[in-house]
Amino acid sequence: MKDLVRQKLSINVDVMDMLNEQIAKEAHSSSIYLAMASWCDHNALNNSAKFFYDQAEEEREHMMKIFRFINDNGGTSYSPEVSNIPHDYNSLEEIFESALGQEINITKSIHNIVLKCRKVNDLATENFLQWFVKEQMEEEQTMRKALDLFELMGTDGIALKLIDERIPTIKG
């Protein structure tokens, strides 16, 4: 008997659900980074603002990558709803700390999908996700580098301005 479901869909259907959840997470990340960019802009931290604007765009690209992957392989992608975006921060250091926390959560989430792919033998999606595994390593490193600046320079007086000046150098 031919298997019409398999003919139509190249990826595992439960993995597809997880990928759709990941789409929502990337969209959420993108919106959070946008809120952070706005905060930096208002606090005259121009380099940090630019950093987070770029970050927001990158997260949207991640989202689109997954979105197309699902549809290209016969599944259905769902356009995500985004809510709960915090806009209140006390300091730039707090922003980078929460950015690192967010990236760590995304890493866990990606790893979780990879593990599911292995369980259900979805080698195509596992292969697709390898790019994200690597990307997450780099994202975490970037945020960690920013936090190192605070450790090195503190936040008193001119230090904050100096940190902002070095933000363009943290992206690997």
Partner: peptide, 30 residues
């Protein structure tokens, strides 16, 4: 059911037989 000739599905729900494309089947599942 899956159609033997056409590339579509049929689902029996409460006395009705509904023809679905794969996309519709996915939407149904969702």
């Amino acid at each position: 059911y899956q159609s033997k000739k056409g590339r579509c599905f049929f689902v029996d729900i409460q006395d009705r037989r509904i023809k679905m494309s794969f996309c519709q089947l996915l939407a149904f599942r969702q």
